[in-house]
């Protein structure tokens, strides 16, 4: 990192005086309240009774806070086993994605071979295709590989993302070629150059890609439904979706379930947020 990049942003010329800054804070805080309000409402509703949840006007605080909704959720959904499935699929998918994307991203950024532009264009074009178009074909492939109801089935398609390749390509492109030239002069082969020189330099982007992939993996619902027909390996999202049963609307239970299912990822995000934001910021995503 160059020193200027690390300098706190307030060094950015127009030193906002502390006197003027409160206006900015006011604007940002108002927006933040709007952003967070739905979560707050979800939390409050989760502790209400069904009757109170559909009262008009709504009560801002539960009259008699109750954990019944959580109990209902834990009773009706095998939370722990589904949590394990979610976590395993996530780990597998992240590792696979990082390996595939880093290799291909590097090749597209730095190696020259016939057809490179065409292939890259092909990959990027896939980004524009609505994902529902792939559904049946992917399912048939997984079935023919006899992987239905396995954790790899949940993880495999997500390992191959054109977006990941694009992201890694951008990151490698932003690294000065001087490093590779030096490695080449030292007699390092392409694989070694990749592994010991280039890869360490894009760590932040790898981190960002890992976090993003985790997100998609954790949130994925349609695909797990399709490839776990026997129900042996189903993630937490499926349990939550099942809550929206056929009839009626038990809002507190829905809110409680939504909260519990989202929580692990929110915690991960809060813990890793620094890596995440830094990674994205340094990834060349700036276009």
């Amino acid at each position: 990192m160059t020193e200027s990049a690390l300098r706190p942003r307030k060094a950015n010329g127009a030193k906002p005086s502390h006197r003027g800054e409160w206006v900015l804070h006011l604007a940002l805080t108002v927006t933040a309240v709007l952003m967070v309000a739905p979560f707050a409402w979800q939390l409050v509703t989760a502790f209400k009774t069904t009757g109170e949840a559909s009262q008009s006007p709504p009560t801002l605080w539960p009259a008699e806070p109750t954990g019944d909704a959580f109990a209902t959720f834990f009773d009706s959904v095998p939370v722990w086993s589904q949590f394990t499935v979610s976590a395993s699929a996530l780990a597998l998918r992240v590792l696979g994605q990082l390996a595939v994307a880093a290799l291909a991203g590097y090749a597209f950024a730095r190696l020259r071979f016939p057809g490179r532009t065409l292939l890259f264009g092909l990959f990027i074009a896939m980004l524009m295709v609505p994902s529902q178009l792939f559904l049946i074909g992917q399912f048939e492939l997984i079935r023919d590989l006899e992987l239905l109801d396995t954790i790899p089935a949940l993880a495999i398609p997500g390992m191959f993302s054109a977006f990941g390749i694009f992201l890694m390509r951008q990151a490698f492109m932003s690294i000065p070629t001087a490093y590779e030239e030096a490695a080449r002069l030292d007699g390092a082969g392409p694989l070694r150059t990749f592994w010991s020189v280039m890869l360490p330099m894009v760590k932040p982007t790898l981190g960002a890609l890992a976090v993003l992939t985790s997100l998609y993996s954790w949130n994925d619902l349609l695909w797990p439904l399709i490839v776990s027909p026997r129900g042996d390996n189903r993630p937490l999202t499926v349990g939550l979706a099942g809550l929206q049963g056929q009839y009626g609307t038990d809002y507190p239970t829905l809110m409680a379930g939504a909260l519990v299912a989202s929580l692990p990822l929110i915690v991960i995000f809060l813990v890793l947020q620094r890596q995440f934001f830094n990674g994205i910021a340094s990834s060349g995503l700036k276009g």
Binding site: P38, F39, L240, Q244, M255, A258, A261, L265, F269
Partner: peptide, 10 residues
């Protein structure tokens, strides 16, 4: 970072 299903419910 919130589940889309959850967001829609809320």
């Amino acid at each position: 970072v919130t589940l889309p299903v959850a967001i829609s419910m809320v």
